[in-house]
Nucleic acid binder design. Structure first.
Length: 104
DNA sequence: AAAATGACAGACA
DNA sequence: ATGTCTGCCATTT
């Protein structure tokens, strides 16, 4: 199964997210080499053990919405210096991980 | 085997 | 801008 390989890639990328930044699932899927696997990213992270030090709280959907059913994420993001809007959404305009910076 | 599900994204109203 | 529908993909019913 390439699922393991894929999740491995996902972990690598998520771990590379800088402090105080957030990334979208589609972004991670694209960077992992599988552009259409945005959903798998979520599953991979859900199944991923927290022992790997994966900042999954920095991963949000393209709307900036946090992971459903996970209230602690709010606090974790606050700890990162990221403050949520009234709708409980991250301000992507400011906190989205600018992957373009990696290429320069 | 077929249909439903999910930590999503893009298109549309 | 929010809410809904459709498309995607692997896993689970």
């Amino acid at each position: 199964m390439d699922r393991k390989e894929f999740s491995n890639k996902v972990y690598e990328i998520v771990k590379d997210i800088p402090f105080g930044k957030v990334a979208t699932y589609g972004m991670i899927a694209m960077l992992s080499g599988y552009p259409r696997r945005s959903r798998m990213v979520g599953q991979a992270l859900h199944n991923s053990p927290d022992s790997l030090n994966i900042p999954c709280h920095r991963v949000v959907n393209h709307q900036g919405r946090l992971t459903p059913g996970w209230t602690d994420q709010k606090q974790l993001l606050s700890n990162e210096g990221i403050h949520l809007k009234e709708n409980e959404c991250v301000d992507l305009k400011k906190y989205l991980w600018d992957i373009a910076l990696i290429f320069f």
